[in-house]
């Protein structure tokens, strides 16, 4: 099989080149820049290179394993729709606020254009999808961020959709699950983006006052203003393996302290060691873990009252 042949090679960017006599030859070694370009070519095709083990994998295969490498368990980033399909029961999802539109309050150069490109690229209207659905029958309100949409950045629409979802959960007395994937606050909306941090945190404090459950799931990457607001406010905080999680981005920290960061710094496992994550959960177990937590909470805890 082609895959078997490829796996034996050391190159991260092997592609299939057939010569005229039908022989398969690997690509030669490349400089880093060439390698990155080739990666892009490869990724546009049927293949994708695993950042965990450097293997070239058939896209078809990793889709079957919910974008997890079947060699090394590397968790690829996952689109928000795929995530919803993975977590919620079939046909149980009802989306909120589909029509809400992003506007450009600062007349920020190029912002409208960026939004349009992100819409084209993802087929979504913003960096978060919100709604309600069921997990093995249990009703939840769910928000899923999309890292592909302008780095999953939080502007007014993202903040408002999440806030409305939380308020809906309060109204319906349902637990909330938020999947974070974000580079932080969206600079193109200036101070209004920053204020979304306060707004979402305030909505979560209301949810908490009502005794309702909030499970935060941190996925790669969760940084900046999202980390400094709803992502770290979960009653229970789960993380996918090896996700980048932090307030400041690694590059900013390296510039500030003028030294290289240690291996694994700001990854899920590191955060768990430092006490900021309850559990790291493999994607294949995520739905079941969420269900188990939801189920225990659904039993209530008022026996002594």
């Amino acid at each position: 099989m082609i895959k078997e042949i490829l796996r034996k090679k050391k190159y991260g960017t092997i592609n299939v080149n057939k010569t005229e006599n039908g022989r398969i030859i690997p690509y030669p070694k490349y400089t880093k820049k060439e390698k990155e370009e080739k990666d892009r070519e490869v990724e546009n095709d049927l293949w994708i290179r695993c950042k965990g083990c450097d293997e070239t994998l058939l896209k078809e295969d990793i889709i079957k394993t919910s974008y997890v490498c079947n060699r090394c368990d590397y968790h690829f980033r996952m689109g928000a729709r795929d995530r919803i399909n993975l977590i919620l029961d079939v046909d149980s999802f009802m989306e909120y606020d589909v029509e809400m539109k992003t506007i450009d309050p600062l007349d920020f150069p190029g912002y409208n254009n960026k939004i349009n490109k992100a819409k084209e690229k993802t087929g979504e209207s913003e960096a978060v999808i919100t709604g309600e659905g069921r997990i093995n029958g249990l009703a939840v309100v769910i928000c899923v961020m999309n890292a592909d949409f302008m780095m999953g950045s939080m502007g007014s629409v993202v903040g408002e959709k999440i806030t409305r979802a939380i308020e809906k959960a309060i109204e319906k007395k349902r637990p909330v699950i938020i999947f974070s994937a974000s580079g932080g606050a969206r600079m193109q909306e200036g101070i209004l983006s920053l204020m979304q941090m306060g707004k979402t945190a305030a909505a979560l404090s209301r949810l908490s006052n009502e005794g309702l459950l909030y499970i935060s799931v941190l996925t790669d990457p969760t940084t900046g203003g999202v980390t400094a607001s709803f992502a770290t406010l979960g009653d229970i905080i789960l993380a996918e393996p090896k996700a980048l999680i932090g307030f400041a981005g690694p590059r900013v920290i390296e510039q500030t302290i003028r030294q290289k960061l240690p291996e694994g710094f700001q990854r899920s496992e590191f955060l768990k060691e430092r006490g900021f994550v309850d559990r790291i959960v493999h994607r294949k177990n995520l739905k079941n873990m969420l269900y188990k937590i939801l189920y225990i909470h659904s039993l209530g805890g008022e026996k002594n009252e």
């Binding site: 709803f230 992502a231 302290i257």
Partner: peptide
């Protein structure tokens, strides 16, 4: 801004800020 350093991250800079927003709002 909040300090962007290694130890600040280790001790949960994001969580510390988030919790203040959460508690101040109520």
């Amino acid at each position: 801004g909040a300090y962007c350093g290694l130890e600040a991250e280790e001790r949960g800079q994001g969580e510390a800020i988030a919790l203040n927003l959460f508690e101040m709002s109520r």
